[in-house]
Amino acid sequence: MAAAQPEFSPKMFVVPVLMLSVKFLKIDLSDYVPVLRVLYAVATFATVGVFVALRSMARRKAEPGNVTVTEKLPSGPVTKKLSTADYDVKECDKKLQQAAIGCLVVAFIHYKWGSPMPLLFQSIMQLVNLTDDPLVQIHFLHKKPIGKLARPFKVANPLADLIEGNTSADDQNSSSAKKKN
């Protein structure tokens, strides 16, 4: 069975093009550190503000229906049924947690090694990723939750897909080896 091909997105090229542009144009970003810090702070506060607003919008909005979510735990998969509002609030909480962790990582890299590049890249990527977020598209852009926007949202995790693909291939190989013996 062939694995699903990853979806092409122009935003995949933002960071490499930006990095090559900085190198090609020989821009010294250390001259712009204060501006980059402000830009990063604005982008981070905008991202957090959007998800806090989405969280409150999801609580107030009474969308009908339930969402069945399967969580992978070490003890095994657990299936839960959540209301649409509860699911959206839970997703906003995940995004806020990811923003906090990302902020800590970028701050550590910038403080420890003095590199201004993460400030620039994360400032731009936070805003680009915000426009692609399913919750933003559903609640702010008023798109219908169908297709790619259907709940539960598909999480693009190529590493997990690779691991799961290899695990299933190993399971098939070991089961076919057992059949031969």
Rank of each mutant, 00 (worst) to 15 (best):
L130A: 10
P118F: 12
V128I: 15
V155P: 02
V136H: 12
I124S: 02
K143D: 04
F121M: 14
D133V: 07
R151V: 00
I146A: 08
H142R: 13
I146H: 04
V128K: 06
S123W: 01
A156L: 14
K154V: 08
P145Q: 05
L127K: 07
V136A: 14
P152N: 02
P134G: 00
F140T: 09
H139R: 15
P134Q: 03
L119A: 06
L130S: 08
H142A: 10
V128T: 11
K143M: 10
I146G: 04
L141K: 14
K148I: 01
F140S: 07
K144M: 05
K148F: 00
F140A: 11
K148Y: 00
K143I: 06
G147H: 04
V136M: 14
N157E: 13
I124Y: 00
Q126S: 15
P152L: 02
P134I: 00
Q122W: 15
L149I: 00
P118N: 11
S123D: 02
K148R: 12
F153N: 02
P145F: 01
K143V: 04
I138L: 06
A150I: 04
V155R: 07
V136W: 15
L120I: 11
N157G: 11
L149K: 00
L149F: 00
M117K: 08
M117D: 08
K148G: 05
P158W: 12
M125N: 14
L135Y: 03
V155H: 11
D132V: 05
T131M: 07
F140R: 05
L149V: 00
V136I: 12
F153A: 03
P158E: 11
L149N: 00
P152E: 01
T131D: 09
L159W: 05
L120V: 10
N129G: 14
P158G: 12
P134L: 01
L141A: 12
P134R: 03
K143T: 04
D133A: 11
M125G: 13
L127F: 11
I138E: 12
L159Y: 10
P134W: 02
Q122K: 14
P158Y: 08
N129S: 09
F153I: 01
H139F: 13
L120P: 01
L130Q: 09
Q137M: 12
N157W: 09
N129M: 09
N129R: 10
M125V: 15
H142P: 00
G147R: 03
Q126I: 09
D132S: 13
L159E: 04
F153W: 06
L127H: 05
G147F: 02
D132T: 12
L119Y: 07
A150T: 10
I138S: 02
P152W: 02
P118G: 14
K148P: 04
V128A: 13
L159D: 03
M125Q: 14
I146S: 07
F121A: 15
F153G: 00
P134K: 03
I124M: 09
K143Y: 04
L141Y: 11
L119T: 09
P118D: 10
D133R: 12
I124L: 13
V128G: 09
I146L: 08
P152R: 02
R151L: 03
K143S: 04
S123L: 04
Q122A: 15
P152M: 05
P134S: 07
D133K: 08
L135N: 05
L119K: 02
H142C: 06
